[in-house]
């Protein structure tokens, strides 16, 4: 009889733990997770400009690894972004960095490799939760 209660309590603890784990699931860490696509900024922009719908199907939510020239570095109140040159004056690739990322030491015109999650295109393509890939 006592054993039965012990099992019930034990399974309740396990269930709570699993629910807690799911509830506190961590965000995708682009530093450690493997890239789905490796592409140049120009090529990515071309795909979106040519056919946004099919580019969305192909790239949304994917981990994009992109190597390009830095056009601008913007430090915002929390986090910031690095803008990559595409050759098109109106459209770039904006790579968003979360709070605590060290992007201030990235220099304009330098070449960087960035990994981020593709969220689509407005005037620019936006990658979120980015990380700098060390070469």
């Amino acid at each position: 009889m006592k054993k039965k209660y012990l099992y019930i309590i034990l399974s309740l603890i396990v269930a709570t733990f699993i629910i807690y784990k799911i509830y506190n699931k961590e965000h995708v860490n682009t530093t450690t997770v493997a890239s789905d696509v490796i592409i140049e900024p120009k090529e990515l922009l071309n795909a979106f400009q040519l056919d946004e719908e099919s580019a969305n199907k192909k790239y949304l939510d994917k981990i994009i690894e992109i190597k390009g020239m830095v056009k601008a570095v913007n430090n915002l109140d929390k986090g910031g972004n690095i803008v990559l040159e595409t050759g098109d004056d109106m459209s770039s690739v904006i790579c968003e960095f979360e709070n605590g990322s060290k992007i201030s030491d990235i220099k304009v015109s330098s070449i960087v490799t960035i990994k981020g999650i593709c969220t689509g295109i407005l005037s620019d393509i936006v990658l979120t939760r980015c990380s700098i890939k060390k070469s």
């Binding site: 961590e26 939510d61 979360e98 969220t119 689509g120 407005l122 979120t128 939760r129």
Partner: peptide, 15 residues
Amino acid sequence: ATLVKGFQFEKALMQ
């Protein structure tokens, strides 16, 4: 204009 997938949440599950 905004990209819906660009919204960041504290918890991944909420997002």
